[in-house]
Write a protein that binds this DNA or RNA. Structure first.
Length: 692
DNA sequence: GATATACCGATGCGTTAAGG
DNA sequence: CCTTAACGCATCGGTATATC
């Protein structure tokens, strides 16, 4: 343990006193305790409310606690007991550590910062807020959520209030924050503040260097009466008899479940995958197609498709097929493209042209299915029948995509993409290295500036710290911009589309690659989850499937507070559907939750996990992926690979291997989710432009 | 692997109120 | 009124854990 200077120097009076103190473990009865007796709770004393936090964590409403007298102790308590910090079990409601005082407090007196960007997790206890900042935490909670926040930021719902902590406001006066700013800790300024009828923060506002009583600094308050005479230390010190300390195991943090928000869509998994595939194809091969930015953005919305977009898409797909088709097919295709180009945007007219084309070239040269039936309107769709909505043509477009990827043009573009990706990666690493070198030099310069002038008369410590922080932030922002720009480049050249992965409960995670948007959608626009490239989509049941292999993790989620929204009849309601996460912070929360519910359990269930490289991030294709078979197709859909990743393990693998692979896959998914959250945040922030 | 943060026990000194 | 007991507030330093 620490051998503080205080422990080695001559023991002062209070130390002697403390060492002779007999501590009694009092049961949590309202009639017995270690506090003092207040027959009628005095209103003048500032201590009584604070008694709520002490008495070894036992919360007592009225301090009717009997003061222990020496005579009583000598009779009742034969053994000495050291005073210890409140234990976890002393907080049945849960507990937290106050950023200001560092003490464990009951969760009921917690006020946590709700700042999102960057996410702040700092918590303060009511007492510290009152004493140090003059803030009334219960008032903050009473205020609740402003309506605009309520409607847009679902993650505030968890707290039920909005509050920016002193740390985020740069007004924190705790010892750590003061020292971080190069200032002395304030010491016990609360006493001074109370006498002045003020808060510590108010005192510091008047005098930033104001300090109170500091521990270990000797007599700091002039005694009002007579001098205290230090007594001789007693012969036996409690230190002499202390046994080797056994550190108690750290608290296991309960990871909160993210908020599951249903995506407002009627599309099933296959239909959505079609839309993902179509969008990814168009985005990937836009360099050899003629698709406007407007139409690229239209493709974000999976439930609809504008007629103009459908027309442009059809002409481009036919053009791609024509480029590598046999002469007679090519002629027919070109004629059809011309007819479509000169015609209107009516989807029924598009379909009529396609049927006519198929009749000309024959199904062996070009085949596609009939459109899907209309979801609205009364027309029953048959080949050549009525098409009321362009969205009905999606299966036709998918068939045309499959035809297009057989062509030499698309394959050449894939090869080009592979080369581009390698170049992009090389450029990225070179730029990142250059930036890191630049930062090392700048850091050195700043440090030298400090060591040269620190302690001098006119040295501005605060100014230097601010300068250092600003430089560091610039460095991090530059690196972040480089990384995300490269990520976008890699995505845009990825030869195939595949989901991020699958979790232990069978849910499949999808994200779209991103094109440069004209305008970042507003938060509520993204939260509405109509634009699929602006959120993480998850297909599956919210709760675990009945599979005993996976039910454990999911059922825990079911019991969590986050799920406690009174949705009865969940058994029937637990169908697979689309869930969406549009808030990067919620995605991070999801990743953390997945890591806690799946990885740990797999380890426990399947045995020790072997060391080894983590599974590769499936969501981010790398240069060495390029040159593969081509774009996603039904037959070669990597979805099947993902879906079966848990079950299709090699038969000759040992349970440990399988456990290792499962954990590895989960780690890869968690990593990919965190990376996507960062990337999405970067896009939302205007791709680094909005940062300082 | 380095750094930051969380957590915890030890310690100093002032305040409060019961009891002699 | 003085002494004593029991806190209350705050810092420090070490270690575990999380994050970069």
């Amino acid at each position: 343990m620490s051998s503080t200077p205080a422990s080695t120097k001559a023991t002062p009076l209070s130390s002697v006193k403390r060492k002779s103190i007999v501590y009694v473990d009092i049961p949590p009865s309202p009639l017995h305790g270690s506090g003092r007796m207040f027959p009628t709770p005095p209103t003048s004393t500032p201590l009584s409310p604070k008694a709520l936090f002490h008495n070894r964590g036992v919360i007592v409403d009225i301090p009717v606690l009997m003061k222990k007298r020496k005579s009583e102790d000598s009779e009742e308590v034969p053994a000495k007991k050291k005073k210890t910090a409140p234990k976890l079990q002393d907080f049945p409601n849960g507990s937290f550590n106050c950023h200001q005082c560092g003490k464990r407090r009951d969760i009921n007196v917690e006020l946590r910062c709700t700042r999102l960007f960057p996410r702040c997790k700092t918590k303060y206890c009511y007492t510290c807020l009152k004493n140090r900042y003059g803030q009334d935490a219960s008032e903050v909670k009473k205020r609740g959520l402003p309506m605009d926040i309520l409607s847009r930021q679902i993650n505030f719902l968890e707290c039920g209030y909005v509050w920016k902590c002193p740390k985020c406001s740069d007004t924190c006066n705790c010892s750590h924050c003061r020292k971080a700013k190069g200032l002395e800790p304030t010491g016990n300024l609360t006493l001074v503040a109370k006498k002045a009828g003020n808060s510590v923060a108010a005192l510091l506002a008047q005098n930033p260097n104001a300090t109170g009583i500091l521990p270990g600094k000797g007599q700091q308050v002039v005694p009002t009466k007579k001098e205290k005479v230090p007594k001789e230390p007693k012969a036996s010190s409690s230190k002499d008899t202390t046994e080797p300390k056994v550190r108690k195991p750290r608290k296991k943090v309960q990871v909160p479940e993210p908020t599951w928000v249903e995506v407002p869509t009627d599309l099933d998994r296959a239909e959505t995958e079609d839309r993902f595939m179509l969008r990814e194809f168009v985005l990937r091969f836009s360099p050899i197609m003629d698709i406007s930015a407007k139409h690229l953005e239209d493709l974000d919305e999976f439930d609809t498709m504008s007629d103009a977009c459908a027309k442009a898409l059809l002409m481009n797909l036919l053009g791609l097929i024509a480029a590598d088709a046999e002469p007679h097919v090519q002629t027919a295709l070109k004629r059809t493209i011309k007819k479509i180009s000169g015609g209107g945007i009516n989807p029924n007219a598009l379909w009529t042209n396609l049927v006519s084309l198929r009749d000309q070239v024959g199904p062996s040269s070009l085949s596609f299915p009939d459109p899907t039936p209309a979801t609205t309107g009364t027309l029953r769709t048959r080949a050549g029948g009525g098409i009321t909505q362009s969205v009905q043509l999606i299966p036709v477009f998918i068939a045309l995509v499959e035809a297009a990827i057989q062509g030499a043009s698309v394959r050449a573009e894939i090869e080009n993409g592979a080369k581009d990706m390698k170049d992009a990666n090389r450029d990225y690493f070179a730029a990142a290295r250059e930036e890191n070198e630049r930062w090392v030099a700048e850091k050195k310069e700043l440090t030298e500036e400090k060591t040269g002038k620190e302690g001098n008369e006119g040295w501005d410590a605060d100014g230097w710290t601010a300068k250092y922080k600003a430089s560091y932030k610039r460095h991090k922002t530059t690196l972040e911009n480089l990384e995300h720009a490269n990520e976008r480049k890699l995505q845009s050249n990825a030869p195939r589309f595949q989901p991020l992965g699958k979790d232990a409960d069978g849910r499949i995670y999808y994200v779209s690659s991103a094109h440069t948007p004209k305008k970042v959608p507003a938060a509520d626009d993204r939260a509405s989850m109509k634009k699929w490239s602006w959120f993480l989509a998850v297909w599956g049941r919210r709760k675990a499937e009945d599979d005993p292999e996976t039910s454990k993790a999911g059922s825990r989620g079911t019991d969590s507070a986050a799920n406690d929204d009174g949705d009865e009849g969940d058994q029937d309601d637990n169908e697979a559907r689309w869930w969406g996460f549009s808030d990067p912070m919620e995605i991070k929360k999801l990743a953390k939750w997945l890591a806690s519910t799946s990885i740990g359990e797999t380890k426990e269930k399947d045995g020790r996990v072997k060391d080894g490289k983590e599974g590769r991030d499936k969501g981010h294709a790398h240069a060495d992926d390029a040159g593969g078979d081509g774009f996603l197709t039904r037959a070669s859909s990597p979805l099947s690979d993902v879906s079966d990743s848990g079950e299709k393990m090699d038969m000759d693998k040992t349970p440990v291997d399988i456990a290792g692979q499962k954990v590895s896959n989960m780690k890869a998914l968690v990593k990919a989710l965190n990376e996507y959250a960062d990337f999405l945040q970067w896009r939302v922030d205007g791709e680094g432009k909005g940062k300082n």
